[in-house]
Amino acid sequence: MGKKDEMKASNPFVHFFQENMGILVALAALCIFLEIMNQRFFTWSNWLTILDNVSKTGFLAIGIMLCIMLGGIDLIAGAGIACSGVLCIVCMERWHLPMIVAIIAGLLVGLIAGMLNGIIIAYSGIHPFVVTLAMQSILRGVAYLLANAQPVPLYVNEFFPRIGIDRVFGIPLPIIYLIILFFIQWLLLNKTKTGRYIYAVGGNETAARFSGINVEKIKILVWTFSGLLCAFAGVVLSAKLKSGQPSTSVGAETDAIASCVLGGTSMYGGTGRTSGMIIGVFIIGVISNGLTLMHLDVNWQYVVKGVIILVAVYSDMVRQRKSQARKE
């Protein structure tokens, strides 16, 4: 939303650059640095790799960003991916159900988990951190139980893996899903009543209630949406891997949260833009890719991401303080 006082620029591109100047510069600097270090960076195929790798984080960030905008958080992502992926594969491999049923079952598990999160958060008053942390543990447990604690390879269905690896006009399908989902989130936040209500509830829950907004409904909706996106990421990943992996994606939520925070979504709630989050997702992806290209130990990425989250949250806090000071 318009943090700045000036009128919104009429040109959406100008507007985009104005609002995201800081991290765009950071992203550009990172890319130029990597190009200088390694000439393979700016190639079409490398960018497709980056995007393909980053699609999972992107799916998750779309939902988690909305939870953060409500002043909450969603931690089920990694476990949600594992659980829905395993369920989807188990449905086909062990229970011999048709693919479409398996996909729906996989998605449903995330949807239900998310809805439960939302209902508990909305009506019990328990902090979202605790609720989703508990749900994370439950989902991870269910994933191991379903899979008998080992990977479940898929043999019976030849077509299913294609939804994770096929290309359209040379572009891997996950990237296309990602673009569509980014667009849906943008529509939700900018073109619907629900979008306005999310900003309102996140900005001041009491005032939103007094404005007649059904705060509980918004919360349930947001956490359900986030759960569904985890499940979607899980189904796509299981297709890519041709198996259900109960131990996959531990800590996937960290990358997604980092992307949101980098993209200017305030942990205090009430602010956040799709465009910023997309750039955040890119930065996370480029960092992992860069470390690989530079032949550094990939495990460095965890250290780097941790530092980035701290810096991003700190600069968010400084911003908040400045705007607070101006209100006096």
Binding site: M1, Y199, A200, G203, A207, I213
Partner: peptide
């Protein structure tokens, strides 16, 4: 506390 969303604009608040 109950009336406004302070970090948002006049337009946002008046129309919510």
């Amino acid at each position: 506390l109950e009336g406004l969303i302070l970090k948002n604009t006049i337009a946002f608040n008046m129309s919510i």
